[in-house]
Computed example of a mutant assay.
Amino acid sequence: MNDYPLLNLFLTMMYVFLWVLWFFLLFKVVTDIFQDHSLSGWAKAAWVIFVIVLPYVGVFVYLIARGRGMGRREVQQAKEREAAFKQYVRQAARDESEAGPGGGHVSELAQLAELKDRGHLSQEEYEKAKQKLLV
């Protein structure tokens, strides 16, 4: 134990943390490169090669050159996903209302879940009934 003092343990933990942080940043940059629709295929290829060949310089140059847009693109994608989810919910509710009272898969699944929650159905029975509805 005397060969590995507490300071060395702390430094090792810090290096591991920085190493994991670096990979997180690298993956975030590469993900942003591929999700950016304003970049052409050649520009994406050039950025990826730059980030792979000179990883530290490439990532830092990317963050300086395009870092501000990363946040905007992420917010825009979140808004698009939320809008798509809301559209799906509206469509499912519309389909449910068109099926009439007591009809449709959504209400049947809700009834099955309620029966399972009350203890009238076991987990296996619930899974089997759910599979019948979804097929």
Rank of each mutant, 00 (worst) to 15 (best):
M1G: 15
Y4W: 10
P5L: 01
L6G: 10
L7F: 14
L11I: 09
T12P: 02
M13C: 14
M14D: 08
W19H: 11
W19Y: 14
W19R: 13
F27L: 09
F27G: 08
K28Y: 04
V29E: 00
V30P: 04
T31C: 09
D32P: 05
I33S: 01
I33T: 04
I33Q: 01
F34M: 05
Q35G: 09
S38I: 03
S40R: 04
A43H: 04
A45T: 09
A46I: 14
W47C: 03
V48T: 08
I49Y: 10
F50V: 04
I52S: 02
V57W: 01
G58H: 03
V61Y: 03
Y62T: 02
Y62N: 02
L63T: 04
L63R: 08
L63H: 04
I64V: 11
A65I: 00
R66V: 05
R66N: 08
G67N: 04
G71E: 09
G71W: 14
R72Q: 05
V75R: 14
Q76H: 09
Q77C: 03
A84C: 01
K86F: 12
Q87M: 08
Q87L: 08
Y88R: 15
V89Q: 03
R90E: 13
R90L: 05
Q91V: 00
A92M: 12
A92I: 09
A93R: 15
A93M: 15
R94L: 12
E98L: 15
P101R: 06
P101S: 07
G102K: 08
G103E: 07
H105Q: 10
V106P: 02
L109W: 01
L109Y: 01
L112K: 00
R118H: 14
G119P: 06
H120L: 15
L121A: 00
L121D: 04
L121N: 01
E124Y: 02
E125H: 12
E125S: 08
E125K: 12
A129T: 02
K132D: 11
K132M: 09
L134F: 08
L134H: 07
